[in-house]
């Protein structure tokens, strides 16, 4: 059991470390395969995210990749409203929370797929344009 739990964490962690939103895989793995309650799975995901992201943030800040000035208000407002979200999550049934999370995942997946296809099309067009420009220059 412990081995499976570590494995579930590693899978979710790898995806998270690659910057694709690890919780979105860790949580379903925990609820579907290891019969975690939804709220419990969310809590585990939250607490594991903290040390990982502190380290990553320090590295990114050193590389001057973090736009603190433009986004501190976003972080502040988000933190205040996360109180509301977290309080509600702790007051509704875990079953309902699970179904809502499932819908959230499906929605995210469809949205990401649409974005990916759009980006792919854009890249293709850009390549075509570049090729045309190059051939025009040659003429």
């Amino acid at each position: 059991m412990i081995f499976l739990e570590v494995l579930a964490g590693v899978i979710g962690g790898i995806v998270g470390g690659m910057g694709m939103g690890g919780g979105t895989l860790t949580i379903p793995i925990l609820t579907i395969f290891l019969s975690y309650e939804q709220l419990q799975a969310q809590g585990i995901n939250l607490i594991a995210f903290l040390p990982m992201s502190v380290v990553a943030l320090i590295i990114h800040a050193k590389n001057h990749l973090v736009a603190f000035k433009q986004t501190w208000l976003l972080a502040l407002v988000g933190s205040i409203f996360s109180l509301v979200g977290a309080l509600v999550a702790n007051h509704i049934s875990s079953g309902v929370l699970k179904k809502l999370f499932a819908l959230f995942l499906i929605g995210l997946a469809i949205w990401q797929l649409v974005v990916m296809i759009k980006n792919h099309k854009k890249e293709k067009e850009e390549k075509l344009n570049n090729n045309e420009n190059n051939s025009n220059i040659k003429k």
């Binding site: 412990i2 081995f3 739990e5 570590v6 494995l7 579930a8 964490g9 590693v10 899978i11 979710g12 962690g13 790898i14 995806v15 998270g16 470390g17 690659m18 910057g19 690890g22 860790t26 925990l30 709220l39 419990q40 969310q42 809590g43 585990i44 995901n45 939250l46 607490i47 594991a48 995210f49 040390p51 990982m52 990553a56 702790n90």
Partner: peptide, 23 residues
């Protein structure tokens, strides 16, 4: 709502996986 006692292996796994994923 955060159960360290039964959840610690998952937490360890996530942190290990995070390092692997980042590299």
């Amino acid at each position: 709502s955060i159960d360290f006692k039964s959840g610690w292996p998952v937490i360890v796994g996530i942190i290990l996986g995070g390092v692997v994923g980042a590299t």
